[in-house]
Design a protein around this nucleic acid. Structure first.
Lengths: 335, 335
DNA sequence: TTGTATGCGTTATCAA
DNA sequence: TTGATAACGCATACAA
């Protein structure tokens, strides 16, 4: 009984065969006679042999793991996407490692560097900046990357996203239809793609309705978290009546839930005093006591498609694709 | 410009030095003269050299990655724990891979098997079953494991948990104090450690208050998700007045939020018609429109401590410890 | 059907 | 200070 973990060599010795035969038992069992195969398998069981994936990978050149580097593990939207990815990966017999950038560029960078050093088979990424040169650099080394939840103009890799501009339109069209003539757009930080696209769509719909641009009030936030939603609530409450919006469109549900919470807690009614539309339609949106109207994204399908695309990169004639899903407005009591 | 990614050998050739010197530049830069070091570094930059961690690990025998196998990535409690783990790991310059068991024993098993094959440096695990023989088996192979959010009687590894029995007591003592004499305990599946311990604490407090055991009504659920909380709400509403509890203690916040949602949506008031206590104090608990009373667990600290314990296993005289934190009741409007 | 030998990219030991 | 060389554990081409 040795101290270190047993290797093929130990198994071979124990089974009285050569090292190559043990390898064959694992990788091409048809080439080895049933009798010796059984003997080898018995030896593996006795010794508690576990294949060293590290060595296998060094020999083969590529690993059997995928990784999803997500923007914010605490946002249920991304864990749902991860769920979709994992379902697809599981079907292909591949494991998924999750990495959390936590909205930090440096953390994203260090995770990506680590994954490249590990020579993972492929990376799914919801980036802080989809135009970062890091991404094509990784692809150039031979590690396929699929961008999730962001579109890209780059033809060197695939992306799977939801039409955020359309989502913004749907939200604002809904509010205009409900008679709102002064609406707040809540979201940030400025420059974040998801936020800018949703805002662009909102503005387009606003202007097409013939409403004065100044009455769609942009209210920037530092993050996409619920705390910032609450702060916006205080801000809105402090506005003089004529300048106070009658509705708010938030760039995600966390913001919307924070805003909703602050509004109700301070004695104003939703939607009577303030109508609220969120984005993502996370579980907690429907479960809020004033159920939240939200723009639904096909989260799980987004993940599934991204994983399928990534897995297909292994195939010979893979053509990079930019997949765009359509969002859908789910109207509830908050409007 | 070769097709495959450059190796130390390529760097050595390009810099006109031996392969050993390149390795020294990376691992013991003091042993190489500034001049050649610069030359080597230049060559690495030119070629876009990235160390093959797989080969390094094969040679060294151990990797520089930790992994947290979590029970349910969609439960905010676990992502907060993960956050704490990652903070500690980051401080030590180590990357963290997240794996999601998604409440499935087979998925947990396949993740663990994969991690053992990868020879990761250590594993943090919130298991479905802390008494599974798999865990000591992994430890026996030399991969340290720390159990997170479950206690263990096993002396072969560390664990970090919160006193669930005490948490159960706190919740029920609070409800008894508020005058409730018929209380539902909501949670499942039966046998899940977290649920059983919280129930045990609840019952102990109930009996110490001299109340009839039958008036603490156990209402099992299939999962810990919000949907099951809603179903329990319907069940409670359907009970005849004298058998209907005036309060519910839910084994986690997702259940509590579902129950809260269903109760309010069906026209009953919280806490007047039904008081509700949750468990975990996830963000959405405080943000619910009827802010939820909940038993708070030090989530981030839990993760941080677990990671520190795991990292300390590398040290010579490590003694396995079972750390137990104390939960705390946060009273809000739902009671 | 089985055994032998080679190399994957790296680190570490030993000579020079 | 640098260079040559032997492992680490595995998969595979080729020989037997």
């Amino acid at each position: 009984m040795s101290d270190r973990t047993p290797s093929v060599k130990d198994v071979a010795a124990s089974a009285g065969v050569s090292l190559g035969t043990v390898s064959n038992v694992m990788n091409r069992p048809d080439r080895v006679s049933p009798a010796t195969r059984r003997r080898v398998e018995q030896a593996m069981a006795d010794l508690g042999f576990v294949r060293n994936e590290t060595a296998r990978q060094l020999r083969l050149g590529s690993s059997r793991t995928l990784s999803y580097v997500m923007l914010d593990a605490r946002n249920p939207f991304f864990t749902d996407v991860a769920q979709g990815i994992e379902t697809a990966a599981e079907g292909a017999g591949i494991s998924l490692f999750l990495c959390n950038s936590n909205n930090s560029a440096s953390r994203e960078a260090s995770h990506l560097a680590h994954l490249v050093e590990q020579r993972v088979q492929g990376i799914l990424l919801t980036p802080l900046d989809p135009d970062s040169p890091t991404i094509p650099a990784i692809v150039a080394r031979g590690i396929p990357v699929v961008i999730v939840d962001r579109t890209t103009h780059d033809e060197r890799f695939c992306s799977v996203a939801v039409d955020d501009e359309l989502g913004g339109r749907l939200a604002v069209e809904h509010l205009v239809e409900r008679g709102h003539r002064r609406v707040a757009f809540v979201g940030g930080p400025e420059g974040l793609g998801q936020v800018e696209d949703r805002y662009a769509g909102a503005r387009a719909a606003w202007e097409e309705a013939g409403l004065p641009p100044g009455d769609l009030v942009r209210m920037p936030t530092a993050t996409m978290g619920a705390d910032d939603g609450r702060r916006v609530g205080e801000l809105i409450a402090g506005l003089p009546g004529r300048r106070r919006p009658t509705a708010a469109f938030c760039a995600n549900d966390l913001l919307a839930l924070g805003l909703l919470q602050q509004t109700v807690a301070s004695g104003r009614a939703v939607p009577a005093d303030l109508a609220i539309v969120g984005y993502d339609d996370i579980y907690f949106a429907a479960a809020a006591t004033v159920p939240l109207t939200s723009v639904r994204q096909p989260r799980v399908e987004l993940g599934r498609t991204a994983a399928e695309l990534l897995l297909s990169e292994a195939e010979a004639e893979h053509v990079h694709r930019q997949v765009l899903f359509r969002p859908e407005l789910v109207a509830r009591a908050s409007t």
